[in-house]
Design a protein around this nucleic acid. Structure first.
Lengths: 242, 242
DNA sequence: CGCAAACTTGATGGCCGTCAAGCAAAGTGG
DNA sequence: CCACTTTGCTTGACGGCCATCAAGTTTGCG
């Protein structure tokens, strides 16, 4: 699959995973006006004009959504990879309840709400694709809630790794149970409600057991069955097709 | 505000909180065909025809959404009170990833997807109201993620009580910092990722400190400021207006 | 009044947090 | 190319929050 040269081609392909677009729809996406910016790792993603009348699209790199508490603690709410629309929810309800930040150096495109709304109005397929994205995000939130509330550290790691692998695979960014893993142990800890110290110990144990290799920003899942089983992982919520 | 006699009046008023409906919209909601059922406490909410081509509306009583793990543990994902639409997300993406159950005896109405979709197609206000409901649900999920990941038991309780009180107040089901509290300590534990034993101890402490009274299914918040402060509660995510 | 469900309390232990220190890796500048 | 710094990883010691197990007690309801 040769990627289209258009920067938003990645979004068109992503949305078309679930909905059948006409050539017109496809073209309309790719002709959306965008401002693209390259951000260094660990930078907040902020709307320059402060109007927050845009949605952002991840074109390259990894990002996350997070909330901060007064004591300085951070909870990561989701990770995002190329093709994702982390704040599509803002389309009809601005006033974000979370921050966004890059994990790696990343290329991010900003698309005006006005144009996205027009797309949704003119094309039922587009409206449905947007709805679907938001609903899948909510389903992913639910999976995280259950992980945070009722799984121990080892199971949490297993569940997150399974989720990330399948999402990357669906985006043609991973295969053969090998994937890039730019997340620091500190990021993993903030996503799973743990400390980085404990994170380190749990990872060591799981590595020792032969569940996976994790070094130089690369994760190789050695025993997918065991990992998925430890997590009680059910990929249905991701709605990746298959 | 005298409630309309129509069973779906409660939904119309709820959706109208955020969106301006015409009299036509209003009437269209109230004329939706529904099947209403009364369920005893602690019963699963199941679609009889198995097609799950319906959304449900809580008319009376409390319900919850949950996920189960293999070891029998339960994670509650959300609580729902009269006027709520717990599974509106199924409208354009069936295949639920969670179960629903009553907390108290409850009256639940089932509305066919077909009619809801037609409403959304014919009225932009309606479409926006649905979108908004789904997005607020996701925002609530995010608040729970942060609670589960980064707050201790005491803060979790404080946060949940603040959320529930404001939602009930907005539905005219609570006031003066007094609200019904039908949740068992076991339910609270399953929502907050704790055991019921620990739940009991934490509640006792908070009661002793004078934060609230909690007996005979009634919660009286004695010190709202202290409770909200302990939770670092910011009501913005609920989008209740005001 | 009797049963079941829910609440309460104590004792004990483990998972994970905190504090502290040292090591490794990666980038920076001279 | 090598000091130097920064960031991230690793490990040990210790403690606390919360889970587990095991009684009781209270509440609610038929």
């Amino acid at each position: 699959m040769a990627p289209s040269g258009n920067p938003l081609g990645i979004v068109a392909r992503r949305l078309a995973r679930a909905v059948s677009f006409t050539a017109v729809d496809q073209g309309a996406i790719e002709r959306l006006p965008v401002v693209t910016r390259i951000l260094e790792a660990s930078r907040d993603i902020i709307y320059e004009d402060n109007s927050s009348a845009h949605c952002c699209v991840i074109l390259d790199g990894w990002t996350c959504c997070y909330q901060l508490l007064a004591n300085g603690r951070r909870q990561i709410l989701s990770f995002h990879v190329p093709g994702d629309l982390p704040d599509l929810q803002s389309l009809y309800l601005p006033s974000p309840d979370f921050g966004m930040a890059t994990v790696t150096r990343a290329s991010v495109a900003f698309v005006p709400h006005t144009h996205l709304r027009r797309l949704a109005q003119q094309s039922p397929a587009m409206a449905q694709a947007f709805w679907r994205e938001v609903v899948v995000t909510a389903a992913t939130h639910r999976a995280w809630i259950t992980s945070l509330g009722r799984r121990d550290a080892r199971q949490k790691v297993a569940h997150l790794f399974c989720e990330l692998y399948l999402r990357l695979e669906a985006a043609s960014l991973a295969g053969d149970h090998i994937m890039p893993m730019p997340l620091r142990q500190n990021d993993l800890a903030d996503a799973l409600g743990l400390t980085s110290v404990h994170m380190n110990r749990v990872l060591r144990n799981m590595r020792t057991e032969g569940l996976f290799d994790l070094r130089s920003r690369r994760l190789k899942i050695r025993d997918w069955a065991a990992l998925a089983s430890a997590a009680e992982f059910n990929p249905q919520y991701l709605h990746l097709g298959n």
